[in-house]
C-alpha cells in the first residue's frame, strides 16, 4: 500500500482534479456550440509557455501559467476579431487562429536554445502524469505528516486550487450562466452582462486548461472539455443532473484510464505501462460511445435552433 501512496495516489488525484476542472466549463461550452474552444485554447498554450520562457529565461510555474493564460486570452480575442471583422464562421475562424499560433509556438521553440530545460511539444501534448509521484510519502499516515506533505508535487495543490476555483465560480454564477446559455437575448433584457459572461466562461476554461496542461498535457484537456459533458447530455434532460453526470464521468475516466494505463499492459502480458493521458482520453471516448448507444436521452426531440 505504501507504494500506492508514493507512486499512484498523487497522479490519480491530479488526473481526477484536472478532468473535473475541464468538464465543468465544458458543459456550458457544449450547450453554447463552442465545444471546440477547448481545442483551440489547449493548442495555444504552447506558444504561451515558449514566450514566457523567452521572456523570463526560466521554466517556473507562474511565468508559464501567465504566459499560457495570456495566450489563451489572445487567442479568444483574435478568434472573435477574425470572426466579426472578416465575417467568417466561428469554426473556420478558430481553425485559422489556433493553427497559426501553434505554428508560431513550434517555430519559436525550434529557434530557442532549450537544452537543459524540460520544454518540448510532446510534453505539452500529453504531459507526464506518471512522473508526479510523492517520494516523501511512506504510507497513508503521510497525509497527516507536515514534512511529507511538504514534498507533495506542486502540481497537486495547484490543480486542486484551480478545480476548487472553477467549482466555486460554477456554483456562484450558475443562474446567469444557465440563463445566458439558454436565451442570451432575454438575459440581456434583464441587464445581465452577456458578453462578459461569455468571455468569463472562456477565461475559466482557459484557467482549467492552463492548470491542467503541465500536469496532464493538452490531450486530456481537450477530451475532458468535450467527452464527459457530451456523454452526460445523453443521460439526462436537466442541466443540474447533466453537470453531476459529467463530473462522475470525468472522475471515472481519470481513475479507469490511469489504472488501465499502469496495469492493463501487465495484465495483457506486457512489461511497460502506456501513456496515462492517452488512456484517460480513450476511456472517456469509450464512455461517450456507450452513452451514444445506450444513453436514455440520446435522441434529439426539440426543434432545432433556426439560423
Amino acid at each position: 500500500m505504501n507504494a500506492f501512496v508514493q507512486l499512484d495516489l498523487t497522479p490519480l488525484l491530479i488526473g481526477v482534479l484536472a478532468a473535473i476542472a475541464c468538464a465543468l466549463p465544458g458543459n456550458f461550452l457544449l450547450l453554447r456550440r463552442q465545444a471546440l474552444i477547448g481545442d483551440a485554447i489547449s493548442h495555444v498554450v504552447l506558444p504561451g509557455i515558449v514566450v514566457a520562457f523567452l521572456v523570463t529565461g526560466t521554466i517556473t510555474t507562474w511565468p508559464m501559467m501567465l504566459g499560457a493564460g495570456g495566450a489563451a486570452i489572445v487567442a479568444v480575442v483574435l478568434i472573435e476579431a477574425v470572426r466579426r471583422l472578416g465575417r467568417i464562421e466561428p469554426g473556420a475562424a478558430m481553425g485559422v487562429v489556433f493553427t497559426a499560433m501553434f505554428a508560431a509556438g513550434v517555430l519559436l521553440l525550434e529557434q530557442t536554445d532549450t537544452s537543459g530545460v524540460h520544454i518540448d511539444v510532446e510534453h505539452a501534448l500529453y504531459g507526464s502524469l506518471e512522473s508526479l509521484i510523492w517520494l516523501s510519502a511512506d504510507g497513508w499516515g503521510s497525509l497527516l505528516d507536515p514534512v511529507a506533505l511538504a514534498g507533495l508535487p506542486p502540481e497537486l495543490p495547484r490543480m486542486a486550487a484551480a478545480a476548487a476555483l472553477i467549482a466555486l465560480l460554477t456554483g456562484v454564477f450558475w443562474r446567469p450562466l444557465k440563463l445566458s446559455t439558454f436565451d442570451e437575448g432575454f438575459a440581456a433584457t434583464l441587464g445581465l452582462p452577456v458578453a462578459a459572461i461569455s468571455l468569463g466562461l472562456v477565461v475559466a476554461a482557459a484557467v482549467a486548461a492552463v492548470a491542467a496542461f503541465d500536469a496532464v498535457g493538452s490531450i486530456i484537456v481537450i477530451a475532458m472539455f468535450i467527452c464527459p459533458p457530451a456523454a452526460a447530455r445523453l443521460m439526462t434532460n436537466r442541466l443540474e443532473r447533466q453537470v453531476a453526470w459529467s463530473v462522475a464521468f470525468a472522475t471515472l475516466s481519470a481513475v479507469l484510464g490511469y489504472v488501465l494505463a499502469g496495469w492493463g499492459p501487465l495484465w495483457l502480458g506486457g512489461t511497460h505501462a502506456v501513456s496515462a493521458a492517452g488512456m484517460i482520453a480513450t476511456v472517456s471516448g469509450v464512455i461517450l460511445a456507450l452513452a451514444c448507444l445506450l444513453g436514455p436521452h440520446r435522441a434529439r426531440v426539440g426543434a432545432a435552433r433556426e439560423a
Binding site: V172, F173, R175, P176, D183, G185, F186, T236, L239
Partner: peptide, 30 residues
Amino acid sequence: YVPQRASVDWDFPTRVIDVVLMGMYRELGL
C-alpha cells in the same frame, strides 16, 4: 420581454418550471 420562439435552442436540458423561474432572476439573484 418575450422573444421569438425560434431564437433559442429548445433542446436545452431544462424543464418548463425552470424556464419560468428564469423570469424571477432579479428576485432570486445569484
